[in-house]
Amino acid sequence: MNLKSSYYFQINEYKMPVLIYYLVIVSAYTFFLFSNIEMVNSHPGSSASLNGMNIATAVFLFISSLTAFKDNLGMMLQNGVSRKTLFLGRLLTMTTLALLLSIVEDILLIIFQLSVSAFTQNLSINNAFCNYYSNSYYQHIDSFSHLSMFLLLNLAMFLFFMAAGYLFALIFHRLNKAVNIALCIGIPVVCFIILPLLNNRMNGAIGKCLLNFFAYTLGGKWNAFFSFTIAALLLSALTWLPLRRVRVK
């Protein structure tokens, strides 16, 4: 069945990049551990922390989704797979990958925290949600509820970043070169020049609006979970619009 093949092909495309990515993450962790362990032990009262590994994973998934689109499309069209099946395969791939990587993130966090505490109590490793959505800073993630909360949050966040990456790639693929260039220049200009200028003129009203928006959407763990999930669903649904008549350039 073509949906199965489409799904297998798309998930297989992530196999090597994910392996390389986690190899880099484990190397970075090992470097962090051994470069800081002596420092914190020799200077009483000092401490070091490494946070936000899951944000790095989200960025990695965003970038790999940006690059996945072109090869997937060509391969599917060459092998008699419809765009509808490509889309369904993509949804299955995203869900599987987000779930798998959320589990891996939990497992790695536990392993990293246990291995750090074996050497010293002054080094800490946490994901981005530990501080933000928990009442206390976790030296050790030791309860199922914490792990399941992180798993759900990571799952929703990873889904959102993958959906966004794929949609961006698709939009850039559909637009012509001139519009692509205009967007590449226009987006940073709007974000980093025009918006700050407008914000200044409006006595920080835009900034306040954005802060309120993020405070509401990401302000609590369930808010964040539902915001990421709804945004991921919305972006995925939007993906179908440019995908249904896309062609290889």
Binding site: N2, L3, G80, V81, S82, R83, K84, T85, R244
Partner: peptide
């Protein structure tokens, strides 16, 4: 059009 059976 969007028909895997025919395209296959």
């Amino acid at each position: 059009v969007n028909n895997d059976k025919a395209l296959g």
